[in-house]
């Protein structure tokens, strides 16, 4: 590249600072913290400031001694609460991703087929909620789902139910909240791939007598795959560690792992255990995150 072909000290200084500044910042404030989380997950909780034991201590003969313990991880293995919490989070995140896909795909498809200028307007309407407060939009569902909320009143009104049903503070509310929040993240990557789909290819297949379902299965679906994968990862990964939605809309028993971690940290003040919970959550997420990063890089190559 011609940029490198121009040596000289000032040029080299410029080049290294462009790389080094964001590199050092992210290294210090994004990468290094994970090492610290892992370190503290090996400590014992103490009633002190800070509330955990140091990793190194002085042995009786005066040498430094490693005090690491795996107790927190063993505890996570033994206590059913954490297992259930992890599995439930994975289940909720998976089902929510599927629901987002089922609703988002036809929406993205319809938008991609709409002529301009309507298409841009519809896209704007998908993006708009993303710019407004996430917290306030989740809160809006407290109004909708309550015993006397719009949904219960509506269902009572048309006679489907005879008395209000519990929606708020249940898993149903958590699903609604996650799909509601992350739907735009599913629609946008889907739209980007579907927009590029060659309509002529569809028409040709249909003209040649292809059954709609077959055209969809053999042409649309494979070509939309990159968008499906990107959208699903954008929903699944953050949903797995979601805290706000289960905390506001879920019941006391809707222990998603993000909430368990939060409570362990703020209520029980067991920092080492919270760190172990975070380490395992990160471990579960490594594969999907690496896949996501792959997808992010591909367009540039």
């Amino acid at each position: 590249m011609s940029i490198i072909a121009n040596p000289g000290n000032r040029d080299r200084l410029w080049r290294s600072s462009v790389i080094a500044l964001p590199y050092l910042w992210l290294g210090l404030f994004f990468l290094a913290p994970f090492a610290i989380v892992f370190k503290i997950s090996l400590a014992e909780p103490l009633i002190a400031q800070p509330p955990f034991s140091p990793l190194w201590g002085i042995a009786e003969d005066g040498t430094r001694k490693l005090l690491a313990t795996l107790d927190n991880y063993l505890f996570l293995l033994e206590d059913k609460l954490y297992w259930v919490s992890y599995l439930k989070s994975i289940k909720i995140a998976l089902i929510s991703t599927l629901l987002c896909l089922l609703l988002g795909f036809p929406m993205a498809y319809a938008i991609a087929r709409t002529p301009q200028p309507w298409r841009n307007l519809l896209l704007l309407l998908v993006i708009l909620p993303f710019w407004t407060s996430f917290l306030l939009r989740v809160y809006a569902w407290i109004i909708m789902l309550g015993k006397e909320g719009l949904i219960n009143n509506g269902l009572l009104g048309i006679g489907i139910i005879n008395e209000p049903i519990s929606l708020l503070y249940t898993d149903v509310a958590v699903y609604i909240g996650i799909v509601y929040t992350y739907l735009p993240f599913m629609i946008l990557p889907l739209y980007t791939t579907l927009e590029k789909l060659d309509l002529d290819l569809h028409d040709a297949a249909a003209d040649l007598g292809g059954k709609p379902l077959h055209v969809f299965r053999d042409i649309t679906l494979p070509m939309a795959m990159p968008g499906i994968i990107a959208g699903s990862l954008l929903v699944f990964i953050p949903a797995l560690g979601e805290f706000v939605i289960p905390a506001l809309l879920g019941g006391l028993d809707s222990l998603m792992i993000g909430r368990t971690l939060y409570d362990e940290f703020f209520m029980n003040r067991d920092w080492p255990l919270a760190s172990a919970v975070a380490t395992i959550l990160l471990f579960i997420l490594i594969l999907p995150i690496m896949l996501f990063q792959r997808l992010q890089q591909e367009p540039q190559q």
């Binding site: 790389i19 964001p22 590199y23 992210l26 290294g27 994004f30 990468l31 989380v37 990862l233 954008l234 990964i237 953050p238 797995l240 560690g241 979601e242 805290f243 993000g258 971690l261 939060y262 975070a278 959550l281 990160l282 997420l285 999907p288 995150i289 690496m290 996501f292 990063q293 992010q296 890089q297």
Partner: peptide, 15 residues
């Protein structure tokens, strides 16, 4: 570096 740029986009906030 590219990993450190992509990962914060999806990293759960609690972590």
């Amino acid at each position: 570096f590219s990993g450190m740029i992509a990962a914060p986009l999806v990293m759960p906030e609690v972590i």
